[in-house]
Nucleic acid binder design. Structure first.
Length: 783
DNA sequence: ACCGTCGCCATTTTT
DNA sequence: TGGCGACGGT
């Protein structure tokens, strides 16, 4: 085992050997981050004789956890079952399963996913008679989740925001939401970590136990931790302080989910005596790709400046391409795939197409299908979110935990048992009044309901029967689907869709069988916990020889010989939502950086002159990020820009147009307010811009009923106008009658050259006096 | 209780 | 454009 360290470069070696005390490893893309982590675990066990159960290694994804398990097992060549290696959530669930009774929950607690959460919030809003227009469940849930990320319990939240009208109401929802969770004996994702923290903080014996146990702690992707995760780690490391965190401040792309990049930036402060080690040698990308990546990330304010370097060859220059529209963009991708397959013997699985949002996949898919190129899409519809799977899970959840009202409501009339909305409302109401579960109400219907619903009675006896079965999970599923008539009712439908649902259920059965084979604890609760924490991307395998399509976010941690970064346009990437906040732009830039550094050999970056989004056409300028890469390390840049030049000339209009299209005056105003309130962001220009845009919008709003289509139209008109006018401004004279798309007919009263444009004063018959720029006015000359 | 239609809305999402 | 929730008709 002494050769363990010899496979590492000096920096990696330093990171591995440095076992005592806090250690921060800034690991650039492709610098062997996982290698350092796994070797460090191996080093601890083999060289330092640390017991495996004294080591805790935390990752964010199951995928990363599995990879780490495999690689560690290979290194130390024996079983690693005693090692605590898992995701934040799985580790916390493990702790909760043991100690959640300290918070008054039962150990068979359910974990509510996003859909459950939404339903629950909806119920709360209804119960509190809150206008769901003003308080959309989505935004309320978001707010609750944010509160949890900041580790504010309902009481603290209410206290903190006692004088904020809106938040006061949300606080009420939050309070009820938590109460309902408890009634359902359920917790949500955020609770998993927060409750663990709560138990540790309120129970010295538990804290003592775990902080003593975990003598060495390692955390992966530390830049993506949020406040709770930081707190958890801090608590667990409180006794020994041997904590190694690995991360890359340039790859933090989950800020919108509460990840707090300051965790990694402040690590040295938080853990005095920290050894900082930077891994800057990249083993993945070619020199030119790396240069592009470095050039881009340089534009971010950065505490841990690093400069990635590589011994790899320079390679091909990253290529820039501009297509007429998104289909041309797709065609380009296909051409390149075919070319590289032919010329450099690449396989389909060597290519990945990365985009900013899922909806961008459509055009590419269409073209790939036409060309018969096999592909797969990562993300999108998730297995566990399919209706039939959720139904099956709901049955299992109810069997495991009868307090789970949500699951009960989901399946009490699925398949149809003639239990309608009214009955369910009644039962829910009764459960509320009697402070018990809906299940209990139905089960003891004679005690609560004068008239007994015979069809619900049958439902209960089926569940009771299933509950009493002492069989493996897979068999329980089969029994459930049979006894409840679920499969039968699908068969009766006799449609293609129903057939595929049945197949999915069979797949689900396979998942259960797998679980029985692999898991030490084969209980139903364990199974349910497992699937609550599972996600599709975990099982992303590259065994199939197909092209991969996915969002940039999903691509994190992956690598491909050839990468296509598509849709590099202002408003798309960076997305329009980020354009007004410098911090958001930096996150977008990190995302771009992540995208670039996925590529091992070839990088293609594409954008389109024209693109259809949400049913209407937009003309977006090329992404500012492209311009941050020095032209001399790009191929095709000039051509692409020339292609784009027409639209590019109108950058301002295009930007404004995007803006008007996406933001209504209300949300804009709010933004201005937020900016004004927050001194850190206060910037006179910014506010002024907002206000200008605000009034621009108002103007537009009043002039058209559907600002959406109309704004697009008038933008197009102005584009069109520019085309003709730029050659023909000569026709503009004082006194000339003209027509304007929005203001109608009018007369030119004054002309004044400005830069390469002309300021035109006009008197309109209806709209009155206006001053417009000739370029954008789109005036039609009337003879 | 179920189905159709209308109108609204629109990132990213490790768990 | 397309997916989803709200509403109203049978």
């Amino acid at each position: 085992m002494s050769d363990l360290l010899e496979e590492l470069n000096p920096k990696q070696k330093e990171a591995v050997e440095n076992t005592e005390g806090p250690c921060l490893v800034i690991a650039g893309a492709g610098s062997g981050k996982t290698k350092v982590l796994t070797y460090k675990i191996a080093y601890l066990l083999k060289e330092k004789n640390v017991k495996p159960w004294n080591v805790l290694a935390i990752t964010f994804t199951n995928k990363a956890a599995n990879e780490m398990k495999e690689r560690t097992a290979k290194l130390i060549g024996e079983n690693i079952n005693d090692l605590w290696l898992g995701t934040f959530h799985s580790i916390c669930v493990k702790i909760l399963r043991k100690f959640i009774d300290r918070l008054g929950f039962d150990n068979s607690f359910a974990i509510f996913d996003t859909t459950d959460q939404k339903t629950l919030v909806k119920n709360c809003l209804k119960e509190l008679n809150i206008d769901s227009k003003m308080f959309a469940e989505k935004s309320v849930l978001n707010e609750i989740s944010n509160a949890k990320n900041e580790m504010l319990e309902p009481e603290q939240y209410n206290f903190k925001y006692a004088d904020d009208y809106r938040k006061k109401i949300i606080g009420k929802v939050y309070t009820l939401y938590q109460r309902k969770l408890k009634e359902n004996n359920a917790i949500d994702f955020d609770d998993i970590i927060n409750f663990t923290i709560k138990i540790l903080m309120e129970n010295p014996d538990v804290l003592e136990y775990y902080s003593e146990k975990f003598k060495y702690i390692l955390v992966d992707e530390y830049q993506d931790t949020n406040k709770s995760q930081f707190t958890l780690v801090t608590l667990l490391a409180s006794k020994y302080g041997n904590i190694t965190v690995v991360g890359d401040n340039d790859q933090g792309i989950y800020g919108f989910r509460g990840a707090d990049i300051t965790n990694i930036l402040n690590f040295e402060k938080d853990f005095p005596g920290t050894q900082v080690i930077k891994l800057e040698q990249n083993y993945r990308c070619t020199g030119n790709i790396l240069k592009a990546a470095n050039a881009v990330i340089k534009h971010n304010e950065n505490k841990y400046d690093k400069k990635l370097w590589t011994e790899n060859e320079e390679g091909a220059l990253p290529y820039v391409y501009c297509g007429e529209d998104e289909y041309a963009e797709a065609n380009f991708i296909i051409e390149q795939i075919n070319r590289l397959k032919r010329e450099e013997y690449y396989k389909y699985s060597d290519f990945a197409v990365l985009y900013r949002m899922n909806s961008q996949s459509r055009a590419i898919e269409d073209k790939l299908r036409i060309e018969d190129i096999p592909y797969k899409i990562v993300g999108g519809l998730k297995f566990y979110e399919r209706k039939e799977i959720k139904d099956a899970i709901a049955y299992l959840r109810l069997i495991s935990n009868q307090s789970d009202n949500l699951s009960l409501e989901r399946i009490i009339n699925e398949p149809k048992r003639g239990v309608g909305k009214t009955s369910i409302d009644n039962i829910r109401e009764l459960a509320n009044q009697n402070d018990t579960s809906m299940y209990e109400i139905i089960k003891n219907a004679d005690k609560y309901i004068p008239r007994i619903y015979s069809n619900t009675r049958e439902f209960i006896s089926t569940i009771e029967e299933l509950k009493s079965l002492d069989v493996p999970v897979s068999e329980l599923i089969t029994e459930t689907l049979n006894k409840t008539g679920y499969t039968q009712s699908l068969k009766n439908e006799n449609t293609v869709e129903a057939e595929s649902r049945i197949q999915n259920l069979e797949e689900f059965l396979t998942v259960a069988e797998e679980f029985e084979k692999e898991s030490a604890d084969k209980s139903l609760t364990e199974f349910l916990n497992g699937i609550s924490l599972a996600s599709d991307t975990d099982s992303l395998e590259d065994t199939d020889n197909v092209v991969t399509l996915m969002t940039l976010h999903s691509a994190k941690g992956l690598e491909y010989p050839t990468i296509f970064l598509v849709g590099l346009e202002e408003g798309i990437f960076p997305g329009y939502q980020s354009m007004d906040n410098p911090a958001d732009i930096e996150e977008e830039r990190r995302l771009f950086y992540v995208g670039i550094t996925r590529a091992k050999q070839h990088l293609f970056m594409t954008f389109a002159r024209r693109r259809t989004i949400f049913g209407s056409t937009s003309y977006n300028p090329p992404s500012r990020f492209l311009k941050e890469i020095p032209k001399d390390i790009l191929e095709g840049y000039e051509d692409a820009m020339q292609e784009k030049s027409l639209a590019d000339e109108f950058e301002d209009v295009a930007l404004e147009w995007n803006y008007g299209r996406k933001h209504d005056a209300y949300s804009l105003k709010n933004k201005v307010k937020t900016y004004k309130a927050d001194d850190n962001y206060l910037n006179e220009n910014k506010v002024a811009t907002f206000e200008a845009k605000d009034s621009y919008l108002k103007e537009n709003k009043t002039s058209s009923t559907s600002s959406f289509g109309r704004t697009a139209e008038s933008f197009l008109a102005s584009l069109q106008a520019k085309k003709t006018n730029s050659t023909d401004i000569s026709k503009y004279k004082v006194g000339q009658r003209v027509f304007h798309k929005k203001f109608g007919e009018g007369v030119i009263t004054k002309l004044e050259p400005e830069d390469d444009d002309i300021k035109v004063d006009l008197d309109f018959e209806k709209a009155g006096h206006k001053r417009l720029m000739a370029k954008f006015a789109g005036l039609e000359i009337l003879e």
